[in-house]
Amino acid sequence: MSNNRVYIALQNNEDARPIIEAIEADNPHATVTHFPAMVKIDADGRIEVRRASVEALIGRAWDPQEIHLSLVSISGNVDETDEAFILERHN
């Protein structure tokens, strides 16, 4: 089986918490691991962070580029649009 794992790591703080919750809800295949000060989310193939899902949790407009404020690290090919921040591997 080929390894097409992607991940996103976010700070474990108030700004990142709704983003993490939205990722968990929208990516049921993902695994969430808590480390001191940070949360790492791994998944095979693809992780999506959807604007609409984060907005529903925080009750205000959210620009996917705001993720830059909470990001620790990523692995995978990035696709950034107005609607989502996506990490993927096609192999």
Binding site: S2, N3, N4, R5, N77, R89, N91
Partner: peptide
């Protein structure tokens, strides 16, 4: 090994 492996497979 895991994440680097996925990168090079890609």
């Amino acid at each position: 090994e895991q994440n680097g492996g996925a990168l090079f497979a890609d």
